[in-house]
Design a protein around this nucleic acid. Sequence first.
DNA 1: TATCAGTTTCGTACGCCGTAGCGTCTGCTG
DNA 2: CAGCAGACGCTACGGCGTACGAAACTGATA
Lengths: 232, 232
Amino acid sequence: MAAAIAIADAEGLAAVSIRRVATELGARAMTLYSYIERKEDLLALMLDEIAAELRGDELHGDELRGDELRGDEPVPGDWREALLDIARRERDLVRRHPWRMDLVATRGVAVGPHALRHVERKLAVLARLGAGPAATWRFLAAYTDYMTGFLVREAQERAAPRREGISDAERAALAEPYVRELVERGELPHLAPLIEGGAAGAGDTFERGLRWLFDGIERELSPERGGAGPGR
Amino acid sequence: MAAAIAIADAEGLAAVSIRRVATELGARAMTLYSYIERKEDLLALMLDEIAAELRGDELHGDELRGDELRGDEPVPGDWREALLDIARRERDLVRRHPWRMDLVATRGVAVGPHALRHVERKLAVLARLGAGPAATWRFLAAYTDYMTGFLVREAQERAAPRREGISDAERAALAEPYVRELVERGELPHLAPLIEGGAAGAGDTFERGLRWLFDGIERELSPERGGAGPGR
DNA sequence: TATCAGTTTCGTACGCCGTAGCGTCTGCTG
DNA sequence: CAGCAGACGCTACGGCGTACGAAACTGATA
């Protein structure tokens, strides 16, 4: 797993092949099949393994994995700040392991012990909302979906310059034929000023989008008020 | 493109190989390289092609592609209903072509003429918000990210039973080792009741999540009011 | 009608991939 | 010491994307 993760971090998920991982370990390809049944097992294990890095305290070695319960120490601050903190850590995780979103998009989210403990942590935060189990689950689903979409986009934008030339070269050489023609024919009246004005792609929308989502959730829980306070 | 799309619809994106598409067309593999430079070009073309199905009117043949301007007829109702309508169509599109999310997650969103016209349509709706270009772009980014995340998850959940046994068989045979042990050791106090109570995975969260996001955006634009009205 | 440039198609080949099948070796258990 | 389970390696199969050069076909020109 460590070898596979190192390869994926350095050269992308496509470089993780059975032969390559085996070579990195000084073995032959078929040796790996003593420990896994299919390559997909290895990928699933990688996905759960990096979820261990999502713990609040940064001690993610194996030393305190044993019997003492952890994972539901009270999180400081209100639920918004706590969930925002978790979101930032998830974003950092994808920055370290961009291939995570490739796997999430194809195999779905991990269901190993580390990943489950992380879900537990998020539910502990959401429990402060005092909503019922069904509503809590829906909140988590909306949060997860937004995060997935943002992180997929960010990981892929970050990987794009590595695949081709530079982002500017791509924009100049690839957007010219389509966009220029459509813009000059006046078929994109709303999009054209955004492109030419530079508004497209400017700024970091990560926390902004999360706050909008949080606002909407908060308003549902206290509908008569404006929702300015922490609610409840 | 049509042959490739048909294969992907029927057997998934992995079945789309150069050799397979060529065979479907009664030709040999290398023949395709007279029309595309790389396989990725074919995938990009597929992605833009299905975006043509996102037009509001259902005439997505080639017959009226010519000179008459279209794409910014006023959309009925307020912006929320209009954007919700677009969102439903995007969801239906992924239902017809689940492999779209695979491509979006790896290659990013399409930048062909059909896809650009669809972005234009969304910007026309968002223009009613009367926000500046930067804010409008951020709204679109947040919407797109939520949609991507939801659709990636839905497409992958829909494809999961096809990959393995049944969803129930999977839940029983695969979740047992991890989850049961952790639950019985009491390490997942918040997650356990959701699983056992059946709250997990119940109901459709699509429009709910979108409405929360819309509420948050609306509140930003009219902060002093509760945001109950359509605003502005 | 004969020629020819240009396009389209094809056969072959290279180096990858995941993994099935089977033989060999090692070290622990009874 | 016998037996055996597990770790490990070799070989092979069918598939992949695509580079390269030859062949076949097309339409326009002499």
